[in-house]
């Protein structure tokens, strides 16, 4: 080893810090995430069987998934699942619902406006902002290329 620990502190720290078993994490994310999607498919087929069109069935599916996630968040179960599943519970739309419901519950003690009202967007806000902005930028390009020229 050349030089003192201080000079290459970052790489030294990386060396002595254990990393999680990626394989196990990835497997857990895979099967739990996959299961949530399968549950979504089940709901979708159910609503289609009731005679709904594809879009409407999709909306009802989403509402059901979000409602279940919010309930699991309220009972403190979603965070326990996430501890095990990682991206498996973060990536599905249920993770988005969890990111809305959890600050709303946590910050209720700080009032309706500055507590719940502001904080409800603390994690979901950026998702909405950048989603809307990215679709606006690409939409602008689409408008220019299809309708201007």
């Amino acid at each position: 080893m050349t030089g003192s620990i201080k000079e290459h502190y970052d790489s030294y720290v990386k060396n002595v810090t254990p990393t999680a078993s990626t394989l196990k994490n990835v497997w857990n994310a895979f099967w739990i995430g996959g299961l949530i999607c399968t549950f979504g498919q089940l709901l979708l087929e159910g609503f289609l069987a009731l005679g709904m069109d594809k879009d409407t069935a999709g909306y009802y599916e989403m509402v059901c998934l979000i409602l279940s996630s919010v309930l699991l968040t309220g009972f403190g179960i979603y965070s326990k699942m996430a501890k095990y599943a990682g991206a498996g519970t973060l990536v599905p739309i249920t993770g988005f619902a969890n990111s809305v419901a959890s600050p709303a519950i946590e910050f209720k003690k700080e009032g309706q406006v500055f507590g719940v009202g502001c904080r409800i967007f603390s994690i979901a806000g950026p998702v909405i902002l950048y989603g809307i902005f990215a679709s606006w930028v690409l939409g602008l390009i689409y408008w220019i290329t299809h309708y201007v020229f």
């Binding site: 965070s79 501890k83 519970t89 969890n98 946590e106 603390s122």
Partner: peptide
């Protein structure tokens, strides 16, 4: 947790460190 990390009901994984 509330002031330095995430709301307690938010689903995250803690790193081993």
């Amino acid at each position: 947790e509330k002031s330095f990390r995430f709301p307690l009901g938010y689903g995250t994984q803690r790193k081993l460190s």
